[in-house]
Design a protein around this nucleic acid. Structure first.
Length: 208
DNA sequence: GCGACGATTCGCT
DNA sequence: GCGAATCGTCGCG
């Protein structure tokens, strides 16, 4: 099963254009093999975070802390952090070493292992299984233990697999969710999702 | 050591 | 639509 999904090579993640990569990630597969449960999902929504100039980024102004350290690693690693004391957030680190770019995976579409996903989420409405960044981590079993791990090796707990890029006309671009504090950066069109995909998170449109 | 806050979610009104 | 939940991280001193 998992052999059908070819990992994205490390080189994929090394571009400096984090917004282009965030769009290229749409349609790609996010796969977890945790607790012997294989779960395959398709990425349908992403957000780019572009330090140093991005006030919405934890690494704004290239601020290095114990937490943001991961974002400065070479592209192709995970950045997982805890939000609101409750929810884990899964990001893909991009760019060369020293560049603190990251892409938040906000929503995915369940493809395989839906039974495991539903068990972890423990809710009935299938459309609410993975339509939010905290839900994605809960559904796939991703926690802060999975921070700073390589994502380009298919024998690991978490990896990303290739798929054909989407047509630009099928991609929505708009302001990111939940970063009102980021001042002028709040309105940057760094949120991307697949138009009309039923698994995209709420709200569909953000206004600051 | 302490206080403020958050790249959210869920349940209730 | 609104408020509570819940705790690691960060800045201050």
């Amino acid at each position: 099963m998992s052999n059908n999904y070819k990992p994205l090579p490390k080189e994929f993640y090394l571009s400096n254009d984090v917004c282009q990569l965030a769009q290229l990630l749409l349609g790609k597969y996010l796969i977890s093999k945790i607790d012997k449960k294989l779960c395959v999902t398709k990425i349908v929504e992403t957000e780019a975070y572009k330090a140093p100039e991005d006030k919405g980024s934890h690494a704004y102004n290239n601020k290095i802390t114990a937490r943001t350290n991961t974002m400065f690693a070479e592209g192709g690693r995970s950045y997982v952090y805890l939000c609101y004391g409750i929810h884990n957030m899964f990001n893909v680190v991009t760019g060369p070493t020293g560049t603190a770019h990251a892409i938040l995976v906000r929503a995915v579409e369940p493809i395989f292992g839906i039974k495991f996903i539903a068990e972890r989420r423990n809710i009935k409405d299938i459309k609410n299984l993975t339509n939010g960044p905290g839900k994605v981590c809960h559904a796939l079993g991703i926690t802060r233990e999975d921070n700073n791990k390589q994502l380009y090796l298919d024998n690991k707990k978490i990896y990303l697999a290739d798929n054909n890029p989407l047509n630009t006309k099928d991609i929505y671009k708009g302001p990111r969710v939940g970063i009102a504090y980021a001042e002028e950066c709040a309105n940057w069109p760094f949120r991307f999702y697949i138009k009309d995909n039923p698994w995209v998170s709420h709200p569909k449109i953000v206004k600051y």
